[in-house]
Design a protein around this nucleic acid. Structure first.
Length: 977
DNA sequence: ATCCTCCCCTAC
DNA sequence: TAAGGTAGGGGAGGAT
């Protein structure tokens, strides 16, 4: 596929294994579950349920289902019908399910417009009635009587008279009118992807069950579907208008398998509070971008091995040569959607979200007849229509792409041990052949099988390395294959435009064009030194090799995942900060979901924001981001996270630190890197904090704990491939014997855990945790304030260890020093030690090194700690006075305390920040004349510490302008920090 | 030197 | 109307 996400032309990529062979010490790659996002999860879930249903169905056909007593012979009257039952119905949902089962229909447990043909519903509440289009997703909403009556008459009756709301049909027809090319898919689905509107509209009338003249091919059970479709569409008088309209510029209008529910779907952050989730469902780039994760899960059994097994049973490697075959499906998206319409093969067809000839929807894929009109991926549909008015456009059909991709890869893995997936339609194979073998034969066989299985053509390039194979494919397309023998390499490359080389995009091409280099032959005249100077050392080196046909990269089945993120740069328009916060929250949820799906968590969080460039007007592309400045900021936290609350807290802080006018924001992205395995025993929530707790209590450090595992029971929702930075030993659950002793648990931390985590932990300790907590509570009430004097230790580390290993009653004594009005989370006084312990070694060492000896010995009194964070900021001055120290000294000694990646959902966070800001500002005012050096120290320190603390980052960002203003006022100029 | 952050570029 | 994502590589420049 050559997807373009903009108007600038994009070139094909380099082999993605370019990074070289994987480090043998490292695990091959992250295992990714299919549920790297919500859509994937539901797809899998539905698949399971469908399988289950089909099992039921087959057993029932043998009379094994006791629920079905009727031995009638009415087979398959519901063939092609898939119902989803909404709400209470008579007959019941279960009965309807059995009816469908018995009569060849399908019963869908979870609504999906892709699989459902009819919604069965007995009554409709007002809210749904008003929003029928949204509710029905454009599908017919029908009373259950339709099913009962159809069975009674042993024929599939028209559902039209059984519509729940008379209005429904009008609504539906309006939708069709609104968008000529999106139709009801409702009725058709599993076996074909499109239906000819023209023929349908020209049908004589809506005779139920009557077969039609639709020119559909390849499906065996169409007749029912066709008649349903025709009936459905014929009831729309307005459709005729649509048809004549479309006939003006379209020879043929197709309606395809995709639903029309998106027609009325809100499509920007202004109108849809769930924009993030909805957006990804329809994004082709999201589909492409996340495909690899799904592939890894589905083909994990092919990826685990090293692929070292030789294809050739003959082990004599001396006479073998390595050959790389690159296989690429031809205009994949189009091929898939038109595979049931052979008559369209030689007509221009493209895939696009919209058929609007004035629209700015982007063409995603165009077949070769369309390309002959100059239509290319990435082009606006209006430009495509301008070049070719009779262009036929199909909407996306992601589930079919997925299906064909699966077939494609099944074939590849069948023929070859070493398969490197590039994308859903493109892969490298490495085969070893004896000198006499013709490498073209195997490519021929594979291509043939692909076509026979998928009815889509593929092209193949064959060469001695990945580069040559990939280049050869370009020559082979469409539907062909090409072998570049070693002695023809130079000749082949001589006239090849440099833009054909992987890695040469728009920018590199322009740079080289400046030097009057346009072909690989010309590129060869440039020395490596000059190339490296102009393009960077790596790129220069790579291109020097490429233009000579040299490529050392190896076909690798597996690659390590280094980052996981999500971004949206379309439809983003915020009115106010409430909008942006909601959006950010949803984005965090999405990212968290993906992290969990891959079973990982990360330490570096990067927020990227696109902001309208000054002077840039509303973009040409509808709801696009237009001309933007991109800003990004990353924060590395001590312990890896993947929970929504932590992500959100950090994302929110970082977002705020940009000080943006949210109205100007056009895109937001959130990404996590420095990934490590998530602790799977607490899947989902708050793993970071639990890990912190455990690791501190058990003194395991920051690395995730390796655990013995019973990996054989592979869970559906657990990752199944390789993992980051860990061996194949996958931890599946924390053994109770590995739990830290109860006495080692910090009760303050426990107390602040979200309830669901607490319950889980409590369960792990068989209820003991709650008992201890309760008994301790009484103690605290009774004992009043308890001094912590016993904790004083010779050195900081010992002190921390002690802190963590205190008896529960002692460990939580500090709690008693908090007054009711404490704004600080109760766990902070304890967790700071945990945090310190979990800091990167160098940071911790740094902090410890700088602690004055007396402060190492004497921890800050709890009272001063708590007072720092709350109450009026004047208290902090008191505190400094009492301690007789400067703020910079205090910051140094309390660095860990001020590193609260804790209590992410703390509602008082803002109040805390505001108080601290006030304090710092006042401090600046006090010191600005007398001690500018102290202020310099303070802010340098704040800046440095903010790397590991979103609180300090926020504090720094908010107070720096004040400092600089004061400096300017008193001294002129700015402090250079 | 080596690492880190903040970009940009590229591929599908 | 329309769904401009995702991930890796690498360079510049600053911190250590």
């Amino acid at each position: 596929m050559s997807h373009s996400s903009g108007s600038s032309s994009r070139k094909r990529g380099r082999p993605s294994s370019k990074s070289g062979p994987t480090n043998p010490l490292k695990p091959p790659f992250f295992k990714s579950s299919p549920f790297s996002d919500f859509g994937s999860y539901m797809t899998e879930k539905n698949r399971k349920l469908r399988d289950q249903f089909e099992t039921d169905a087959s057993s029932s056909s043998h009379g094994a289902n006791p629920a079905i007593t009727d031995g009638g012979d009415s087979q398959g009257i519901f063939k092609g019908v898939a119902i989803f039952v909404d709400g209470f119905t008579v007959p019941s949902s279960q009965e309807l399910k059995n009816y469908m089962l018995k009569h060849g229909g399908k019963f869908v447990n979870y609504f999906s417009r892709h699989t459902v043909s009819h919604i069965i519903c007995s009554n409709l509440p007002d809210s749904k009635r008003k929003n029928l289009r949204a509710f029905s997703h454009g599908l017919p909403v029908v009373k259950p009587d339709w099913i009962v009556d159809s069975i009674a008459s042993n024929t599939l009756l028209s559902w039209v008279p059984y519509q729940l709301v008379e209005h429904a049909i009008t609504e539906t027809s309006k939708q069709l009118k609104l968008s000529a090319f999106f139709s009801e898919k409702g009725i058709s689905r599993s076996h074909h992807q499109g239906i000819l509107i023209q023929n349908e509209t020209s049908l004589p009338d809506k005779c139920k069950g009557e077969s039609t003249e639709l020119t559909l091919s390849g499906a065996d059970n169409f007749s029912q579907e066709k008649s349903l479709e025709s009936k459905h569409i014929d009831t729309n008088d307005e459709l005729k208008d649509v048809k004549s309209e479309s006939e003006e510029d379209c020879s043929t209008s197709y309606v395809a398998g995709q639903s029309s529910d998106h027609l009325n779907r809100p499509h920007s952050t202004l109108t849809d509070p769930n924009f993030v989730e909805n957006y990804f469902k329809y994004s082709r780039l999201h589909f492409i971008g996340t495909w690899r994760n799904r592939y890894r899960k589905r083909f994990s059994n092919f990826l685990s091995g090293t692929g070292s097994k030789n294809n050739n049973p003959n082990n004599n490697t001396e006479n073998l040569r390595r050959i790389v075959i690159h296989i690429d499906m031809d205009c994949f998206f189009v091929s898939v959607v038109i595979r049931n319409f052979p008559e369209l093969l030689d007509k221009p067809v493209a895939v696009c979200h919209s058929n609007n000839p004035k629209g700015t929807a982007e063409i995603s894929s165009a077949n070769y007849p369309a390309r002959s009109y100059g239509i290319k991926a990435g082009m606006f549909v209006r430009d495509a229509k301008a070049r070719c008015p009779h262009l036929t456009i199909f909407p996306y059909d992601f589930s079919s792409y997925e299906e064909v991709a699966d077939q494609f890869y099944s074939i590849l893995h069948k023929h070859c041990e070493k398969v490197q997936a590039v994308s859903c339609d493109e892969a490298f194979l490495e085969v070893s052949l004896s000198l006499n073998d013709n490498p073209e034969n195997i490519a021929e066989i594979i291509r043939k099988e692909i076509f026979e299985t998928t009815r889509c053509s593929a092209s193949a390039g064959i060469g001695e390395n990945m580069l040559l194979a990939r280049l050869a494919t370009k020559s082979a397309k469409p539907n062909g294959q090409c072998f570049i023998p070693p002695d023809k390499v130079n000749e082949y490359l001589d006239k090849l435009p440099i833009s054909a080389l992987p890695g040469v995009g728009y920018n590199v091409e322009e740079k080289l064009r400046m030097k009057e280099v346009e072909t690989c032959g010309q590129l060869r005249t440039i020395s490596k030194d000059i190339l490296q100077k102009d393009l960077g050392s790596k790129m220069g080196d790579m291109l020097w090799n490429y233009c000579r046909g040299i490529d050392h990269s190896a076909v690798e089945a597996v690659q390590e995942t280094k980052s996981i993120g999500a971004e949206v740069n379309w439809g983003v328009r915020f009115k106010d900060s409430k909008d942006s916060e909601n959006f950010l929250m949803n984005l965090c949820k999405e990212v968290s979901l993906r992290l969990h799906g891959c079973g990982v968590q990360g330490r570096t969080i990067t927020l990227k924001v696109k902001v309208r460039k000054k002077g840039a007007g509303e973009p040409v592309k509808y709801m696009g981001c237009g001309d933007c400045e991109t800003i990004s900021r990353s924060l590395t936290v001590p312990g890896s996270i993947n929970d929504v609350a932590s992500l959100h807290r950090i994302a929110k802080q970082t977002f705020a630190s940009f000080h943006l006018d949210v109205k100007e924001v056009r895109g937001v992205g959130l990404k996590l890197s420095r990934l490590e395995l998530a602790n799977p025993s607490h899947k989902g929530i708050e793993e970071g904090r639990l890990e912190l707790l455990f690791s501190s209590a058990t003194r395991k450090g920051k690395q995730p704990v390796e655990q013995s595992c019973s990996t054989n029971h592979s869970r559906e929702d657990a990752p199944s491939g390789a993992h980051p930075s860990s061996s194949s030993a996958v931890s599946q659950g924390r053994n109770i014997s590995e739990l830290p002793p109860l006495s080692h648990i910090d009760l303050d931390v426990v107390r602040n855990l979200p309830s669901e985590i607490f319950l889980e932990m409590n369960g792990l300790y068989k209820g003991e945790l709650r008992k201890i907590l309760e008994s301790h509570k009484e103690k605290v009430y009774n004992s009043g304030s308890i001094e912590k004097k016993d904790c004083r230790q010779q050195d900081q580390e010992t002190s921390m260890r002690m802190q963590c290993e205190l008896e529960p009653s002692e460990a939580s004594c500090s709690k008693s020093n908090y007054c009711e009005s404490d704004l600080m989370p109760g766990s902070l006084s304890q967790v700071d030690f945990l945090i310190l312990e979990n800091l990167p070694d160098e940071v911790r060492a740094d902090i410890l090194k700088q602690l004055p000896p007396h402060r190492v010995e004497n921890q800050l009194p709890e009272s001063s700690k708590s007072s720092l964070s709350l109450g009026s900021h004047s208290k902090w001055f008191d505190m400094l006075r009492v301690r007789n120290c400067l703020l910079s000294e205090f910051l140094l000694s309390s660095a860990t305390f001020l590193t609260p990646n804790i209590n992410p959902s703390c509602e008082e966070w803002d109040a805390m920040v505001v108080n601290l800001c006030e304090f710092v500002k006042e401090y600046v005012s006090q010191k600005i004349e007398s001690d500018i050096e102290e202020l310099y120290n303070c802010f340098r320190l704040l800046k440095r510490l903010s790397t590991n603390s979103s609180l300090l980052l926020e504090l720094y960002d908010r107070t720096l302008p004040f400092l600089q203003a004061s400096v300017g006022e008193h001294y002129g100029g700015k402090l250079h920090l």
